[in-house]
Design a protein around this nucleic acid. Structure first.
Lengths: 129, 129
DNA sequence: ACTATAGTTCGCAACATATGAACTATGGAA
DNA sequence: TTCCATAGTTCATATGTTGCGAACTATAGT
């Protein structure tokens, strides 16, 4: 088992963060971790509450790795399971306002989606054909 | 020639924006456009001042398309050339703080890189081969 | 119509991603 | 210690995405 790779704070890049969070599944994971606070942990097993469609654990493992190697989360083994926590405070110090802007944008978007879903449960985006 | 596609403001997604800006070339283009103000335009031809390595124009064309279809820029033909302007104000209204956070992070990162390049022009990241 | 300039599209090679199957790691029970 | 269950990783591969040269389209000036 290759050891877990956590970049040091100065090796974290904006491009890496944006790429990691440009995937909807990773974004959902990260939002849940970041909003949950420092004692909130998720892993491949208890994540179904956060994401809607079922995702295989090999895929989830890769997503956690992507978040970890982008520097967004810290992963530690505790017994048989993994505890993933967000590295928000560090990143806020290096890139002030970045995560706040992204998290807020996700909030705006998910509120808007909820509103649209309530209005028209079946239709999307008035696409003909 | 297929007509240019500009998503309406409510169809712009966070994921789309983050993905578009997770590419270093597109990020450099966008930073230049955004910081240049509303009368600043760049295109496939006058862009060499913004990016360091030379990039084929077919690639640049694709990058502009990616930015356009993510909703980040607006492209208009003026005679034989293209004028690309940032859509920052619209996006700021929909996702307050998002672009500011990203632009600031890029500024932090490029200042840091400039500092490192001045210190040790040839060495990078103290990696032992 | 001809030429020059600016940008787009096509086709393909190189790279990235998602996932089932097989594997590793840890803890507890017998 | 051995066996089993649970949690997660790695591998192989099929599918998707990207970068770029070559060919094409569009516009302006002559």
């Amino acid at each position: 088992m290759r050891p877990l790779i956590h970049p040091s704070i100065e090796d974290i890049t904006v491009e890496g963060i944006l790429h990691a969070l440009s995937d909807p599944v990773r974004a959902a994971i990260y939002v849940a971790l970041a909003l949950g606070g420092s004692d909130c942990t998720f892993n491949c097993s208890n994540l179904q509450q956060v994401i809607d469609r079922p995702i295989p654990k090999s895929t989830l493992s890769q997503h956690f790795r992507a978040l970890r190697e982008a520097g967004l989360i810290r992963s530690e083994r505790h017994g048989v399971e993994m505890r993933n926590t967000s590295r928000c405070p560090e990143i806020e110090q290096r890139f002030p306002g970045l995560l706040a802007g992204i998290l807020n944008a996700h909030k705006v978007q998910s509120m808007e989606r909820a509103r649209l879903a309530k209005r028209k449960p079946a239709a999307r985006k008035s696409v003909a054909g």
